[in-house]
């Protein structure tokens, strides 16, 4: 699975790439795989404020709709307009070209609430082990 070393992660499968006080946010390979072909991204409004772990936006696939949460608090300074016409960009390049929004980070200390790439990898393995509730028991 494609996990970028210097990104930080949430347990809800979002990533943030922090550079000079600005965080670029997207969803992980695991999330895009679970969603399937994405048909719509409800892009957030620039200049709006978001809180850490509060809803940033939602994405839709044919048979699902999922809320995307913001890894850190801040003001949205840019959104990826390409996703309006080409939501499948997330499926093709979720960690790079399929980014969703950039935020001006309000509080750098919040990064301590996030998982490192290594922690996120172990978290994914634990999910695979425990699985989602199954009735085969």
């Amino acid at each position: 699975m494609d996990i970028v070393e210097h990104y930080l992660y949430t347990k809800e499968h979002e990533w943030i790439n922090i550079e000079d006080g600005v965080g670029t946010v997207g969803i992980t390979e695991y999330a895009q795989g679970a969603l399937g072909d994405i048909t719509f991204v409800d892009l957030p409004h620039t200049d709006s404020e978001v809180e850490q772990f509060e809803q940033l936006t939602s994405v839709e696939s044919v048979k699902s709709a999922s809320d995307i949460f913001c890894p850190m608090s801040g003001r949205i300074i840019d959104v990826n307009d390409k996703l309006s016409d080409d939501p499948g960009l997330i499926n093709r390049s979720c960690s790079d070209k399929g980014w969703i929004a950039r935020i001006e980070i309000a509080d750098m200390d919040e990064s301590s609430n996030l998982l490192t790439a290594e922690e996120y990898s172990s978290y994914l393995e634990s999910l695979d082990r425990n699985g989602v509730v199954d009735t085969d028991e």
């Binding site: 048909t39 719509f40 839709e60 696939s61 044919v62 048979k63 699902s64 709709a65």
Partner: peptide, 12 residues
């Protein structure tokens, strides 16, 4: 566009 509908989005 079934993601708008109750059988997918439930209370939302």
């Amino acid at each position: 566009l079934q993601a708008r509908e109750q059988h997918i989005r439930r209370e939302k």
